[in-house]
Structures are given as structure tokens and as C-alpha cells.
Design a protein around this nucleic acid. Structure first.
Length: 932
RNA sequence: AGGCACGUAGCUCAGCGGGAGAGCGCUACCCUGACACGGUAGAUGUCGGCGGUUCAAUCCCGCCCGUGCCUACCA
């Protein structure tokens, strides 16, 4: 036997990936006649290394792609990576810092060269790691958001949007990262509540008639105040609207204005200081009232020249302290309150963001959002799970213009040139040498680059060759499924929808499947600081304790001080598929991965068993094992020779196939995995293999036909189940499949074999039901054995079945051999009620209307059996009470559907019959006990 | 503050109008010729709380409590 006794994932997974790659099975052909099925990968950051989030999407997308590829589609899974502006630039800047230099010393060109060099050296890591997961991407089509083709697409998109009037440049409040020295989008700013202070400041009225109190969390911005706003309906301030206050410390007069939007009479003092240059709401208010913007804080969060001398150059927080101190000295500090507030912090650097007005490039939201909303509304694109549609709509209906410029060097430099002579802006597809307005040569290119998500937004068509009209674009766009995390619904999905509709005039994908977030077993987000990181590669290949980082993997080390064993990519994939119930967090428990490795070991051993018993398999049908049996009209077995066990497993297989097909269509990956788990372990291993052992071990000439039928059925079932499982667990299925006997013209790999389909002629319900009854009977007898402590080795000599039902009798007769073996019983006798009652001193059970009577004969302890009977009777009594209560309820009888009522009546009758039988046995046993 | 989820066996989660399910864990027995990463049998739940609709509610509706996420506000 060439297969090891224990499944070794690392060994099994070692060779197949290269085999698939070398044979080109991952490649998709744009010229194929087959219907396309396309998924574009959510491009991971080039700086990234594989984490569980990646592992999840690789699993689900590969599952879909492998399934559809087997199912006859031209399946394209288009891979690539994202240049990840900030992340990558920061990485290289850190390197430079270590060398004692920085990007400014290096200069733009040299710096970019350096980043490219870094990318070429390290950028392949994440791709490499995905291969260890078994990802069947078409690697020949791998793209990078900053490669030549995609850069062209970005340039074209920018210029076109500009020409369409959808891109503009404007001064806007932006969230400035004072450490990262860049503008952040709303989505790059984290907001978490902290304790802060609210200062109430007195601003004296210019005419000396008193003062007005304003509350502020940012006293240092008062130098930039250009108004105080109150609500026109606020009686406290009605009379002073239109007057001016003299701004302390600078002695500048600013008006008290009435505004209906900003001031809330119920909050604070009801009066608000307006600083248009340093607060987004004040900025808007400033526009409403034509107020000047006085910037007082610079890009490094220091006070600039627009403040009194003693404040110039101070950090904003030092300035705050000093302002408060001066106000206090002047008797203008009214009071201080403690108040929770939520500062914006840069996701990258953690610095509190400074809102500042800056000239930025924007993409208009509304006109682009409209078609994208309609596309989802009309069902052209379906969002799964549907709950996310609400979130999508909410974002789209309230969309804000998208700030796309970033003050970085690594990225797509904005194709805009400014003229020093006439201030005309030139935006073109080819780099200009002269100003379009005045033909001057004094033009400068915009220094900024585009937001990384701008290029990502074009991903579904830029990767297929757009703006060229390529065959790929024609064949594979729109894509069928976008599979990604809900956390980037806005960042990415919504923007792809907008760009797809605008540039391609069609949706980028027909379905969006949003998967859950992978968290640790406690539901915490995995993070370095929490030390709860589980590395997919550690799960796949195992990790010794010394390989684990005491900080990063603290949790794992606590659970596994010795390190973790290799579980294999298949077990990890199976686990993630099992966890992928829609709309939930995934709380990953390593124990569960181990559980599914055990499952794969079970499959492994089932295959081992099959191979051990197939060595001389030479049924005539063997020859027809070519393209796979099910697609040919022939069956691989002689139907007449099939046992009821064979028929039962084939019927169960058929049901399983149908169920898996449905669940795959509905993205219910957990159901798919669960169906497989149950079929393989419970049906195939626990029952079928056990049931056919006698047939397989029978080498006599008379047994040949039955044996062949069992061999054929076992092989057929195993082979089908491997193909069913292949999308989830590609390695082990290929490995086993390759060692199965098959004809020369069979496919070379399971991954290009067809996906199983249910076959009507293999749904053999009648035999299936007979076998199902036999299984129930065996279970009942085993239950008696178990509960009365009959040792596993002990054989029961006689078992009587009391039934007068012809079908049941025939089932028992056909299945007698199974019962004898599985329940360890020798003589089985079917008797009528009268005869049955005469057999005294028995252990009794009711099973589907059949009474099982086992004479005690010293093998069953009377006391144990009495205890068991009493338990059974108590159960039946409870059942009877429950059903009678229902049936004696007049309203139930009057209103419930007849079908339900009949069912309840039938149940009651059965319970009562069962009770009678059990009571009789009880009485009998008690008599026996008394007699000694 | 508003919105959206979620609260089911010790743990992780399915189920979502007709008497509660799985895996892991647990208990007892068993190394039976694929597998001890195994087999057979078994125990375990006021299905978060309170009301309502219904003949019938874990499932539908309302309120409350708890958890998480999103959006907004924060003078």
C-alpha cells in the first residue's frame, strides 16, 4: 500500500501546485467558446504578507473559480497587487532613515527608482504566499496598479473625467496628517472617543456693553476667528446680532452673525466662534456668510505669522495652553468643562488630524453615484448578503465629492500642468511642453499623486486592457462576482461601480459577495498589539514555538506552548469555508482547523480503504471510467447487481450533489462544506463502508457480482465526492484522485474534470428507504446494547422483529445480513404480534412501528433494562402529554390545517402503541425479576 | 445620538412559524483486518428579558437589557 496510514498534509500538498501550473490549467482563454466566469482579485498591497483576511478571500474565490472551471465555464481569476501609496512609501522612507537620508535629499526620481527596486525585491511575497493556499489564478495575467498598462488607464480616466467636468480643483477643508505630511481621505481617519476639555471663553462686545460666551474645544484657533454665530431664534442673543465683538489678544473686531445651521441654542452657550480656516463646519459657515479665512496653524501644526508674536512658532497644543492662560489672566475664561470628544486621528501615523484649507483635486460624487445606485436598484448588480445594500445606498445617496490628490511621490502623478504666466491648467493624455492657454513653456507639473483607490476603482476593466478595446475586455467584462470584505464597500466596491458605469457603460460585476471579518476566538480584531495574530502559513506548515513571535502570537503560544502542527492549506480552506456563513464575524478557533484536518484524515483513510479493496477490481464497467462516468450514458456498474447499501449511498450522493449545487449558487459556503462533511463521515464512512465490508471480503465465485457492484459503487462514490470537494480542498482531492484507477483517456487532473451533477437514474428511493429503515433498526439494537452495557464483543443470539407490514418485512429480509453484522446478532426472526407477545423476558424497543424484542438470556442485565425501559416510558409519556394537550385544544382542531392535525393524531396513536408495548415489557420484566 | 447586525448546549456556530441541531469539549465502553486525527452509546439547553400577534413562536411585531459594526455630532 503506497498511501500512508496517516494523512500528512505537507507531503500531500508539496507537488500538485507545480503540476497544475506546468500544465497551464489556471490559464483562461479569451478566444474560448465557453461562457466566461470572471473574478478579479481584490489586489493586496505589495507591501503585504498573507494574513487570515487574505486566506479567506483566496479560499472563497478559488472555490468559486475551481467550481465554475470544472462546471464548464471559461474561468478567469485575475490576480494582481496594489501599489498602496502611503504604505509602500513609508516602508522605503524607513529604510532611507536607517541609512541616514530621506526622500528629499534623494530627489523624486531617485526615490521612485528606489521604491521600484524595493517592489521588485519584495513585492512578490504576497503572491507567492497565495500560491501556498492553492490559488488558481491566471498568473500570466498578473497586474500591478502602477504598471504601464494600468498607468495608461489611470491617465485616460483622469483626463476623461476632467473633460467630462467631473474632476475639478478647489480649496477645501482637508484632513491633514501633520506627521505624514499628507492629506487623508475621510476613510483614512479613525475616530475614537477620548476625554477632552471644553473651554468657555468670554468675547467682549466692541461697544463695551458686555460680553458673549463661546464654548470651544480648540482655544488656539481663536486667532483665526472671523465671526461669532448665534441662532436667530435664540432670545438670549436676539438683540446683539449685527454687533461686533473685539477678539481678545488680537483686538480685532468680528461680527456676531445669525446662522440657522450651526448654532444650537440647547448646547453650550448657544454661541459659536467661527474659524473658517480650521474647522469643516466653520468653513461651510464661512462660505454661507462670505467670511474671510485666516489660517493660523501651518502644515506642521505650528502657529504661523497670523498670530501675536509670543504665539508664533508654538505647537498647537502649547499655543492652546498659553491662550487659556492669557484668557484667565484677562478674566475672560468663564469656565472649563470635562467633555468626551472624538478627535480624528490618522490611520497611518496616529497623529490628530488638522483640518486645513488646501487646493485639491476632487471627483464629483453625485453624477457618478446616480447610475451606480440604479444598477443595484434594478438588480443588474446584486449585493449579497442583501443587508449590505442598505449600507451601499446610504453611502451613495449621501455621497461627498472624493478628494483624490495625495501629497506623496509613490503613485500616479496627476497629469495636470500649471502655467506660471497665465495660470491656465493643462490636463492632457500626453505630457505637454507648452501651456495650452498662452503657449508659454513655463509650465510645472502638479507634484501630487492620485489616491491609491483611484487606480483600484478602474481595476475590473483596466486589468483587461482598457482603454484599448481588447478581446479580453470583450470576453470577460462585466465580471461575474466580486468577492471582498465589507470593510472596503465604500473605498473600493462603490467606486468600481461608479467608474464601471461611467467608462464601460455597464456594471463591473453581476454579484458582490461580501464576506465577514476574520477575528480571533474572542471576537477581537487580529492585531500586533493584541498579540492574537494567527498566521495562515503557520497553520499550513506548522510552527515550532521558536518560530512564533512572542508579541504577535502571544495568544497562540499560550494555547500551544510547544508550537502548532501542520494542518495543511486544505484544512485551513475547509475551515474558512465552514466559517463563511453570511453576515457574521469569523471567530477563528485553531481547534476547529485541527478538527477539519481530522476530517481530511478520515477521507484519506476512506480512500486508503477503497484502494486496498479495489486492487483486483475488474468489472466490465471499469473500462468506461473515462471522462467520468456520469457524463456518459453508461453506468459504471451493473444495476441489477447493486445491493440496497449501494443504492442507498448512490441516492445519498445524488441528494448531496443537488444540495451542494444549490448552496454554491447561493454562496452558502458553510452549507456546502457541511454537506460534504456529513456525507463523507456519516454516510460514506460510518455506514456505507462498514456495510459493504462483508461483500468486499467475500472472494467466493458466488459473491463476485455483489463484490464487483460494491467496488464499483465505492469507487464511483469516492471519485464523485473528490470532485465535489475539489474546489474547497484542492490538494488532497487531487492527490487521492491521481491514485485511483482510471482509463487512459481520463482527464490528467481532477481540476479539469467535470463537476458532478445529480443523475435521476441514481435516485433509487425505494431501496434507499429500505436501507434507511435497516440503519434505524441497527441503531435501535445498538442503543439497547449500549444502554444495558452489553460489551461490544458479545454476540446477541436472537432478535425478533414484530411487524405485519409487508414492506417492512421485506426490508428486514433484504437487510438481514447488515443487521446481523452491524448489531452483532445471529438469528433474526420476523414474527406477528401474537407470536411476538409470547416471547417472554425480553429487552424491547420500538423503531418506526416495528417492535424489537431481544431475549435477555443472561446477556442483558434485568436492572439495566428496567432502568432503560423506565426512561423510555417517561419519554413516551411526555410525548403523549404534549400531543394530547395540543389535540384537546379546540382552537387547534378548529383552525390548524388538516394536514397538521392528522400528523398529530398519527403521532399520538404511535406513541400510545409504543407505550402499551413498553408497559407490557416492563410488567414482564418485573415478573421475571420477582421470580428470580 | 441615529442606523444596521447579533444574543440558541461549556465553547464556536447552523436553523428562523408546527415538538431544539452540528462540530469541538464532556461521560462510559471498545486498539473490531481504512482511520485512536478512530468506533459505539450517552449527558447537556426557561433558543437574552418582558409584552403582543397566532390554534401554534427560538422563528413574526413592540419595548427593554447586553455585544459588535457603521454613520453623524461633539461650541
Amino acid at each position: 500500500m503506497k498511501i500512508d496510514q496517516i494523512y500528512n498534509p505537507t507531503e500531500v500538498e508539496a507537488q500538485w501546485y507545480d503540476f497544475w501550473l506546468e500544465n497551464g490549467y489556471f490559464r483562461a482563454d479569451a478566444n474560448s467558446e465557453k461562457q466566461p466566469y470572471t473574478i478579479v482579485i481584490p489586489p493586496p498591497n505589495v507591501t503585504g504578507s498573507l494574513h487570515m483576511g487574505h486566506a479567506l478571500f483566496v479560499t472563497l474565490q478559488d472555490l468559486l473559480i475551481r467550481w465554475k472551471r470544472m462546471d464548464g465555464f471559461e474561468a478567469l481569476w485575475l490576480p494582481g497587487t496594489d501599489h498602496a501609496g502611503i504604505a509602500t512609501q513609508v516602508m522605503v522612507e524607513r529604510e532611507l532613515a536607517k541609512e541616514g537620508t530621506n526622500r528629499h535629499e534623494l530627489g523624486r526620481e531617485a526615490f521612485l527608482k528606489r521604491v521600484w527596486q524595493w517592489k521588485d525585491e519584495h513585492g512578490g511575497q504576497i503572491i507567492d504566499q497565495m500560491k501556498h493556499m492553492g490559488a488558481s489564478c491566471d498568473w500570466d495575467r498578473e497586474r500591478f496598479t502602477l504598471d504601464e498598462g494600468l498607468s495608461r488607464a489611470v491617465r485616460e480616466a483622469f483626463v476623461k473625467l476632467y473633460e467630462d467636468g467631473l474632476i475639478y480643483r478647489a480649496e477645501r477643508m482637508v484632513d491633514w496628517d501633520v506627521v505624514g505630511q499628507t492629506v487623508l481621505s475621510d476613510l483614512e481617519v479613525d475616530r475614537e472617543e477620548e476625554m477632552g476639555k471644553l473651554w468657555y471663553l468670554r468675547y467682549p462686545l466692541s461697544d463695551g456693553s458686555g460680553h458673549i460666551i463661546v464654548g470651544t474645544t480648540r482655544p488656539e484657533t481663536m486667532f483665526g476667528d472671523t465671526a461669532v454665530a448665534v441662532h436667530p431664534d435664540d432670545p438670549r442673543y436676539k438683540d446683539i446680532i449685527g454687533k461686533t465683538v473685539r477678539l481678545p489678544l488680537v483686538n480685532r473686531d468680528i461680527p456676531i452673525i445669525a446662522d440657522t445651521v450651526l448654532p444650537d441654542p440647547t448646547k453650550g452657550s448657544g454661541a459659536v466662534k467661527i474659524t473658517p480656516a480650521h474647522d469643516p463646519n466653520d468653513f461651510e459657515c464661512g462660505i454661507r456668510h462670505g467670511l474671510a479665512r485666516i489660517q493660523v496653524i501651518d502644515f506642521h501644526a505650528r502657529m504661523n505669522d497670523n498670530v501675536p508674536e509670543e504665539f508664533v512658532g508654538l505647537d498647537r497644543y502649547d499655543a492652546r495652553k498659553l491662550v487659556v492662560q492669557r484668557f484667565e489672566e484677562l478674566g475672560l475664561l468663564d469656565r472649563i468643562e470635562e467633555k468626551p470628544y472624538t478627535p480624528g486621528r490618522s490611520q497611518r501615523t496616529g497623529a490628530v488630524v488638522e483640518p486645513l484649507p488646501m487646493l485639491q483635486w476632487f471627483v464629483k460624487g453625485e453624477p457618478l453615484a446616480k447610475p451606480a445606485i440604479e444598477a443595484v436598484e434594478s438588480g443588474r448588480t446584486e449585493i449579497i448578503p442583501a443587508v449590505w445594500k442598505k449600507t451601499y445606498d446610504h453611502f451613495m445617496y449621501n455621497i461627498r465629492d472624493w478628494c483624490i490628490s495625495r501629497q506623496l511621490w509613490w503613485g500616479h502623478q496627476i497629469p495636470a500642468w500649471y502655467c506660471d504666466d497665465c495660470s491656465h491648467i493643462t490636463v492632457t493624455r500626453h505630457d505637454p511642453t507648452h501651456c495650452e492657454g498662452c503657449n508659454s513653456a513655463n509650465i510645472r507639473r502638479d507634484e501630487d499623486v492620485l489616491d491609491t483607490w483611484f487606480s483600484s476603482a478602474l481595476w475590473p476593466f483596466s486589468t483587461l486592457g482598457w482603454p484599448e478595446k481588447t478581446v479580453e475586455l470583450d470576453k470577460f467584462y462585466p465580471t461575474q462576482v466580486l468577492e471582498t470584505g465589507f470593510d472596503i464597500l465604500f473605498f473600493w466596491v462603490a467606486r468600481m461601480m461608479m467608474m464601471g458605469m461611467h467608462f464601460m457603460d455597464d456594471v463591473p460585476f453581476e454579484k458582490v459577495f461580501l464576506h465577514a471579518m476574520v477575528r480571533d476566538a474572542e471576537g477581537q480584531k487580529m492585531s500586533k498589539t493584541k498579540g492574537n495574530v494567527i498566521d495562515p502559513l503557520h497553520m499550513i506548515y506548522g510552527a515550532q514555538s521558536q518560530d512564533l513571535d512572542p508579541e504577535l502570537h502571544a495568544e497562540l503560544l499560550r494555547q500551544y506552548p510547544e508550537g502548532v502542527d501542520a494542518q495543511g492549506a486544505d484544512a485551513l480552506r475547509f475551515t474558512l469555508a465552514m466559517y463563511a456563513a453570511q453576515g457574521r464575524d469569523i471567530k477563528l478557533d485553531v481547534k476547529r482547523i485541527e478538527g477539519y484536518r481530522a476530517f481530511l484524515n478520515k477521507l484519506w483513510n476512506a480512500a486508503r480503504f477503497a484502494l486496498m479493496n479495489l486492487q483486483d477490481f475488474d468489472a466490465p464497467s471499469y473500462k468506461t471510467f473515462t471522462e467520468t462516468w456520469e457524463t456518459s450514458a453508461d453506468t459504471p456498474f451493473v444495476l441489477n447487481d447493486l445491493s440496497i447499501a449501494d443504492r442507498w449511498i448512490l441516492t445519498r450522493l445524488n441528494e448531496t450533489i443537488a444540495s451542494i449545487q444549490t448552496n454554491l449558487d447561493e454562496f452558502s459556503f458553510n452549507e456546502v462544506a457541511q454537506n460534504l462533511y456529513r456525507f463523507v463521515w456519516n454516510d460514506l464512512c460510518d455506514w456505507y463502508i462498514e456495510l459493504i465490508k462483508p461483500a468486499l471480503y467475500d472472494n467466493s465465485p458466488e459473491g463476485k457480482a455483489t463484490r464487483n457492484a460494491a467496488q464499483a459503487t465505492l469507487l464511483y462514490t469516492l471519485e464523485a465526492v473528490l470532485r465535489l470537494m475539489h474546489p474547497i480542498t484542492p490538494f488532497i482531492t487531487e492527490d487521492i484522485w491521481q491514485s485511483l484507477p482510471r482509463a487512459e483517456d481520463a482527464p490528467k487532473s481532477i481540476m479539469i474534470a467535470p463537476f458532478p451533477t445529480a443523475r435521476a437514474e441514481l435516485a433509487m428511493i425505494h431501496a434507499h428507504d429500505h436501507m434507511a429503515l435497516i440503519i434505524e433498526l441497527i441503531s435501535s439494537i445498538r442503543a439497547i446494547r449500549g444502554e444495558t452495557n452489553v460489551k461490544p464483543g458479545v454476540v446477541i443470539e436472537e432478535v425478533f422483529f414484530v411487524t405485519e407490514d409487508a414492506h417492512k418485512k421485506s426490508a428486514i429480509e433484504t437487510g438481514a445480513a447488515y443487521i446481523q453484522r452491524q448489531a452483532k446478532a445471529t438469528t433474526l426472526t420476523i414474527v406477528d404480534r401474537e407470536t411476538g407477545a409470547k416471547i417472554e423476558g425480553v429487552a424491547t424497543a420500538m423503531c418506526d412501528g416495528i417492535e424489537i424484542r431481544i431475549p435477555l438470556k443472561g446477556l442483558i442485565n434485568i436492572e439495566e433494562e428496567l432502568a432503560r425501559l423506565n426512561k423510555e416510558i417517561a419519554r413516551v409519556d411526555a410525548d403523549i402529554a404534549f400531543v394530547s394537550r395540543k389535540l384537546s385544544n379546540e382552537k387547534f382542531v378548529a383552525k390548524a390545517p388538516a394536514e397538521i392535525i392528522n400528523k398529530e393524531r398519527e403521532k399520538l396513536a404511535n406513541y400510545e402503541a409504543e407505550r402499551t408495548t413498553l408497559l407490557a415489557s416492563l410488567a414482564e420484566l418485573k415478573a421475571l425479576e420477582a421470580s428470580g
